[in-house]
C-alpha cells in the first residue's frame, strides 16, 4: 500500500509537471486551472502514503533514505501548494515539480521502508529536529525555484525579449516575495531544527560531533541560507542578488549532500 500510494502521488506530480511544461512550451500565459487541484490531490495521496508508512512500521517516515526523501518531497510539494493557492505562482512548479518527482522517484527506487538500525537519537526531540530541518531544506528549495524564475524573468525583461518566459512566468515582485517568504520560514525552521539537534547531542553525548556528515551538511546549509538572507540587505539590485545567491546556494547544498552521501557509500540513512 505504501509503495502503491507513493507511485500514485508520483504519477500525479509527473502529470502536473508535464501539463506545466506543455503549457510553457506552447507559449501559454498560465497553467490550466486543474493543475493546482491535481497538485492538491497528489499531496493528499502522498500524505496518505506517509500515514500508511507510520501505521505499518510504527514510526514516522523520517529515518532512512527512502522515507526521508519522500518526506522532503512532501514538504516541498506543500510549499508549492500553499504558494500557488496564495498567489499567482503556479509556474514555480516548472522548477519544483521535477525536484519533487526526482526525490520521490529516488525514494521509490531505494525503497520506502525503515532502515532497521537502532537509533540513539529518537523520540519527540528527534522528530521535531528532522521535521524542522526538512522544512528548512524545503523552504530553501522553494527559494531556489523562485530565485531561478526571478533571474530568467529579469533577464527577459531587461533584454526586452517578450517570449514564452515573459508570458508564462510570474511578476518579479511576486517571485521576490515568494523567495523572501520561503527563505525566512525555511531559515527559522532550519535554525530551530539544528539547535534541537545540537542541544540533544551536547546534553546526551557531551560533544558537538563536528565530524558527523549530518552536522557538517546542516551547518553548511545554515551558513549558505544565512548568506541568502544577508544578500537581501543592501541597496539597488539586492533582490536579484538574493535570487542569485538562492540559486547558487541551493546548488551548493545539493552538491555537498551528494558528496557527503557518496563518501558514506552503502549507508541506508539520509546521511
Amino acid at each position: 500500500m505504501v509503495t502503491i500510494l507513493h507511485g500514485v502521488a508520483l504519477l500525479g506530480y509527473l502529470a502536473v509537471g508535464v501539463l506545466q511544461t506543455v503549457s510553457f512550451a506552447r507559449g501559454r500565459a498560465d497553467v490550466p486551472r486543474g493543475a493546482t487541484a491535481l497538485v492538491g490531490a497528489a499531496v493528499l495521496v502522498q500524505l496518505g502514503a506517509l500515514v500508511a508508512f507510520a501505521l505499518r512500521f510504527g514510526e514516522l517516515p523520517l529515518v532512512g533514505l527512502g522515507p526521508s526523501l519522500s518526506t522532503l518531497a512532501f514538504l516541498i510539494a506543500l510549499f508549492l501548494l500553499f504558494a500557488t493557492l496564495a498567489s499567482d505562482a503556479r509556474p514555480v512548479g516548472l522548477v519544483l515539480l521535477p525536484v519533487i518527482v526526482a526525490l520521490l522517484g529516488a525514494a521509490l527506487l531505494t525503497g520506502v521502508r525503515p532502515t532497521g538500525e537502532p537509533l540513539a537519537f529518537s523520540g519527540a526531540w528527534f522528530s521535531f529536529h528532522v521535521v524542522l530541518a526538512f522544512v528548512g531544506v524545503a523552504g530553501f528549495a522553494f527559494a531556489f525555484a523562485a530565485g531561478l524564475l526571478y533571474l530568467l524573468q529579469f533577464r527577459e525583461l531587461k533584454s526586452k525579449r517578450f517570449g514564452r518566459i515573459f508570458r508564462f512566468f510570474p511578476a518579479l515582485h511576486t517571485l521576490d516575495r515568494l523567495g523572501r517568504g520561503s527563505a525566512v520560514v525555511g531559515f527559522c525552521a532550519l535554525t530551530a531544527g539544528l539547535m534541537l539537534g545540537w542541544a540533544w547531542t551536547i546534553r546526551f553525548r557531551g560533544t558537538f560531533a563536528m565530524d558527523d556528515p549530518q552536522v557538517i551538511w546542516g551547518a553548511l546549509t545554515w551558513v549558505i541560507f544565512a548568506g541568502v538572507l544577508g544578500a537581501r540587505i543592501g541597496g539597488p539590485g539586492s533582490n536579484r542578488r538574493a535570487a542569485l545567491v538562492s540559486v547558487w546556494g541551493f546548488a551548493l547544498v545539493v552538491l555537498a549532500y551528494v558528496v557527503l552521501r557518496l563518501a558514506q557509500a552503502g549507508g541506508a540513512a539520509f546521511l
Binding site: R28, Q153, P170, A171, L172, H173, T174
Partner: peptide, 23 residues
Amino acid sequence: TQLGAGAASVPSAAVALARKIFG
C-alpha cells in the same frame, strides 16, 4: 484558447510590462 491573452495594444503592453515587474 489563448486567443484573448496578452497585451494587444500599446497602452495595454505598457500595463502588461508594469504588471510583470510589480505584480
